[in-house]
């Protein structure tokens, strides 16, 4: 069995310990890097959301992994939900980890871009920033700063000026079996946002986790994902 994992606002630094639990149990995790996050020179953000979706679908189709269960975190959660809505035949089951795309205006969400660059990444975690994120662009050598900057440009384009892409007008079309997990200490999308998803399914709140909950609480998140995917594994192949 295989699943697709769509990464967060902070890029694709490799599998989190939570996802490694899936691989350890025999599930292949296909984790493509979203457009703009690979540090490619010359990349510019798409001018609108539909063009963003199209570019992401091009990447997903190129993996050859669809249809399959899709897991998405943060902006990856937003893309996973959009895929389930617009291309329902591609998603056999859906797991969302603090997806962005819906805004709860009354909740005190932090703006990472009001902070100096060095203080933005820590805002995504309840615990220390994992080393994998610090090392993410090390392979670029001296060009690492540029690659990191371009990835930040991509991320900012998905959440600027506020992380709302009107997903609330579409999520009623999610028909797949799904599971939503959220960090109780999420400062980017506070738990009030999670409640906006309750019409899709009741979110499970992991109290001690921040926005990137699969890194903050790998055992809890990995366990929940395994439990969710086990049912898919037991489903007879069509």
């Amino acid at each position: 069995m295989h699943v697709i994992y769509l990464h967060s606002l902070a890029g694709n630094p490799g599998l989190s310990p939570a996802l490694e639990q899936l691989t350890a149990s025999g599930i292949e995790v296909v984790a493509p890097t979203l457009p703009g996050f690979d540090g490619t020179s010359g990349w510019e953000p798409p001018h609108d959301h539909l063009t963003w979706l199209t570019r992401v679908w091009d990447v997903l189709d190129s993996t050859g992994a669809l249809p399959c269960p899709v897991i998405g975190a943060s902006i990856g959660g937003m893309f996973a939900a959009e895929l389930a809505i617009f291309r329902p035949e591609s998603v056999t089951a859906l797991s969302l980890l603090a997806p962005l795309g819906i805004w709860a205006g009354e909740s005190p969400a932090a703006d990472p871009y009001a902070l100096p660059g060095a203080q933005r990444l820590p805002l995504l975690f309840a615990s220390e920033v994992p080393q994998a994120f610090e090392d993410q662009y090390a392979a670029f050598g001296e060009g690492g700063d540029v690659a990191r900057y371009l990835a930040q440009v991509a991320g900012a384009s998905l959440v600027w000026p506020i992380p709302d892409r009107d997903l609330d007008t579409r999520i009623h079309r999610i028909r797949q079996r799904n599971r939503i997990l959220w960090g109780g200490r999420d400062r980017i999308a506070p738990v009030e946002v999670a409640m906006r998803w309750s019409s899709v399914s009741e979110p499970t709140i992991i109290e001690s986790a921040g926005h990137l909950l699969e890194w903050d609480e790998p055992d809890a998140v990995g366990g929940a994902l395994l439990e969710f995917l086990d049912e898919e594994r037991q489903r007879p192949a069509v």
């Binding site: 009001a114 902070l115 900057y149 371009l150 440009v153 900012a156």
Partner: peptide, 14 residues
């Protein structure tokens, strides 16, 4: 002006 406001990612071209 706080440093955050001077560093919007993408404001500077590559």
């Amino acid at each position: 002006i706080p440093p955050g406001y001077a560093g919007a990612p993408g404001y500077q071209s590559e």
